[in-house]
């Protein structure tokens, strides 16, 4: 469990990035921080591994205030994946993945063997092991980034817009893969994005942020969709633009679901209760 307790951050130049932010991030689930550019997402994420220290308030992992933990030791047990993967361009793929375990003192051969396994885990062909990051596609680079984040088998995985720079098809692929990984590995994932669809897809818990790290709403995707807390949330999730306001229209004897502009979004096959009971649509 990660706990933000009344955290504020004012940068030396006077920018107030976050003010009095309090949120509990449960273990073994994905929490998504979502908000538009500059609202303090990266700042919040980096407080967890002490790349940023709060000006006031505290961040605790399983009850322990991170301010009392050596930052380097802390970072070596927390996975970190960022946009453009942040891979070391001068190290081969396999060495990039093996880097952190080796910093932790794992022998080279063992770290590299584990790196190859991790390539399988994230769906990368082992033949890419000896390439440099620049010799991979953007999607492949992100997979290496995820593998590197998992290399020390951390309990916590921090992801800062990891899929922000790849095309939509690759992004959908990577998102599916992350969902699968999360089901298999059960990490505590803190995921930052400005894409609300991505947030709803990946998050058990979604925290919608306003400028200055103000929490506009926090809840499961369903809770937020069902009851947007205010105008800002409604607008942010697109409820006011009709994208989320779906209607059922009858066409050729089938229930077709259309959005606010009348564009078809899908076909109505029944309710979730029907599905659970093995009814239509199961």
């Amino acid at each position: 469990m990660i706990e933000f307790r009344h955290v504020s951050k004012r940068y030396p130049d006077g920018t107030s990035a976050v003010e009095d932010f309090s949120v509990v991030i449960p273990s073994r689930e994905t929490t998504v921080l979502v908000g538009s550019s500059g609202c303090g997402k990266t700042t919040l994420l980096r407080m967890i591994n002490r790349m940023v220290d709060p000006s006031s308030g505290s961040v605790a992992i399983d009850g322990e205030d991170v301010a009392h933990v050596d930052p380097v030791r802390l970072r070596r047990r927390i996975g970190y994946v960022m946009q453009n993967s942040g891979l070391l361009p001068h190290r081969k793929v396999i060495d990039n993945i093996a880097t952190v375990p080796m910093l932790n003192g794992v022998p080279r051969a063992q770290a590299r063997a584990r790196a190859l396994e991790l390539m399988d885990t994230v769906g990368l062909d082992r033949s890419l092991a000896d390439r440099y990051p620049a010799q991979l596609s953007g999607g492949q680079q992100q997979r290496v980034g995820v593998a590197r984040g998992l290399a020390v088998d951390p309990n916590i995985l921090l992801m800062d817009e990891p899929f922000g720079a790849v095309d939509p098809i690759v992004r959908a692929d990577l998102q599916r893969e992350l969902l699968r990984l999360q089901r298999d590995l059960g990490k505590t994932v803190v995921f930052v994005t400005h894409d609300i669809d991505e947030a709803f897809l990946l998050g058990h818990q979604v925290v919608i942020l306003q400028k200055g790290g103000v929490v506009a709403q926090r809840g499961t995707p369903r809770e937020i969709l069902a009851r947007p807390a205010n105008e800002f949330v409604a607008s942010f999730i697109g409820a006011d633009r009709g994208k989320r306001a779906l209607r059922v229209a009858r066409a050729d004897g089938v229930d077709v679901v259309v959005d606010g502009d009348g564009r078809p979004a899908g076909v109505l096959v029944g309710t979730e209760e029907d599905a659970a009971a093995g009814g239509p649509g199961s």
Binding site: R46, N49, M51, V72, R73, R75, R76, Y80, M82, Q83, N84, S85, G86, L87, L88, P89, T99, V100, L103, N104, R148, L158
Partner: peptide
Amino acid sequence: ERDVVDSATAVGFA
């Protein structure tokens, strides 16, 4: 690249 240095910090290079 600033990103690369940041990410090296993030994964625990002292």
